[in-house]
């Protein structure tokens, strides 16, 4: 199990950041991702694994307008 933006989500073997984004249907292009408070560059989403138990923050970078 992982936590994404405060909500539990089932973890799968080999899961990447991109997989999480796709499963959540986050299509907004300006996403910023932190795994356990470490940032993940946008061009590494497809290759960065998400470990079981991770706390993932996927921030949509549109705030206030």
């Amino acid at each position: 199990m992982i936590v994404v933006n405060g909500e539990p989500m089932e973890w799968k073997e080999g899961m990447t950041v991109r997989d999480v984004i796709n499963e959540k249907r986050y299509v907004f292009p300006l996403l910023a991702v932190w795994i356990d408070n470490s940032s993940v560059p946008r061009d590494h989403f497809a290759t960065t694994p998400v470990p079981d138990g991770a706390n993932v923050q996927i921030i949509h970078m549109i705030s206030g307008g």
């Binding site: 923050q57 921030i59 949509h60």
Partner: peptide, 8 residues
């Protein structure tokens, strides 16, 4: 997004 999706 900040409120509902990011949960910030």
């Amino acid at each position: 997004f900040m409120d509902r999706v990011n949960k910030q």
